[in-house]
């Protein structure tokens, strides 16, 4: 090999030895993060655990026909007859292939993750929209969160949180968080400058500008972000099963482990069907014509029961 060592090799860093990057990361995580912050991270699990337990218990307690019926009516009122029929068939099929309980577990994990993404992501998006410096600071962080393969952060998550449903949800939150932040930021920045100026000219406080003008007008974009977050969360179902989460992801994962193609397909079909149904319904919720309607408890209930049209309130 010596004859190949020439001038050109001088410029390649590996000629002078290997940088122990892996050791550094290992040191940071194992010798600094875990011993110092493990209790803090453990504490973070608590709210996630509560929400997850509550949701799961609730969803498991609702009998299949009732849950399916409510979902079908919601699909019908918000997204139309076609989506309602699809939803009905999808629910029947999921129950028929015997993964209803797993589907409810997955759903409660997904909804928990989306819930925490929303309560963290929307305020962060608002902050990014109002502060350019904050926006430029978090942009690379979001880029990293979206491009880093989830398998890479599964290891530190297990080290910090252990295994089980809650760490699975936490991995899902990390993976699904960026779109809601990005689109909240984008939605607020897209509101016409002139409208904000009008709000200021009439004496609005910054808070009033946000709640009276910016957020309502950004709602459609924010809903699109929420929809993307939801879809990303669903796509994490199988990966989360790697660290001990249950549900449809676990069905796929065990199928994979036993090379049982049928079992894997059952889990996979369940995930796809639930994804399509949730996607259609949440997309329809972002429709601005729907938002102009009566969204009080009464109005919403009437709409769900078909006593009022799903569109704007009639003049």
């Amino acid at each position: 090999m010596a004859e190949h060592t020439g001038l050109i090799e001088w410029f390649s860093p590996s000629t002078y030895g290997k940088l122990p990057f892996d050791d550094w990361v290992e040191w940071v995580v194992r010798d600094w993060l875990v011993p110092n912050f493990r209790p803090a991270f453990q504490a973070m699990q608590w709210p996630v655990d509560q929400v997850l337990r509550g949701l799961d218990a609730g969803l498991q307690a609702i009998p299949f026909p009732i849950f399916a019926l409510v979902l079908v009516i919601a699909a019908w009122r918000f997204a139309g007859g076609g989506v309602a029929i699809f939803t009905l068939l999808a629910m029947l099929f999921i129950d028929a292939i015997g993964v209803w309980a797993e589907t409810m577990t997955t759903l409660s994990m997904i909804l928990t993750a989306v819930f925490f993404c929303a309560i963290a992501g929307i305020p962060l998006g608002i902050a990014a929209a109002r502060n350019d410096r904050f926006a430029t600071t978090i942009r690379p962080v979001l880029d990293i969160m979206q491009t880093i393969p989830p398998f890479v952060y599964l290891v530190p998550i297990v080290m910090l949180f252990g295994v089980g449903m809650v760490p699975g949800v936490i991995a899902t939150i990390i993976f699904a968080l960026p779109p809601i932040i990005r689109l909240t930021n984008l939605g607020i920045r897209q509101v016409r400058e002139e409208l904000v100026e009008a709000a200021v000219a009439f004496g609005s406080t910054p808070k009033q500008i946000l709640f009276e003008v910016q957020l309502p007008l950004a709602l459609r974009t924010i809903m699109a972000g929420l929809n993307q977050t939801l879809m990303l969360a669903l796509s994490m179902a199988v990966i989360a099963a790697l660290i001990g989460a249950g549900g449809l992801g676990l069905t796929v994962f065990t199928g994979l482990g036993r090379l049982d193609v049928g079992r894997a397909a059952v889990g996979g079909v369940g995930i796809v069907l639930i994804a399509i149904v949730l996607d259609r319904i949440t997309q329809a919720l972002g429709d601005p014509s729907l938002r102009k309607g009566d969204w009080t408890f009464n109005g919403t209930a009437k709409r769900l029961l078909g006593l009022a049209p799903p569109g704007p309130a009639q003049r």
Binding site: R192, L195, E197, A198, A201, F202, E212, V213, P288, R291
Partner: peptide, 16 residues
């Protein structure tokens, strides 16, 4: 709030 109101060239009405 109390004294000076404004009307804009492109109306600047709130569409929602």
């Amino acid at each position: 709030l109390a004294k000076v109101a404004m009307v804009f060239q492109h109306f600047a009405l709130f569409p929602h």
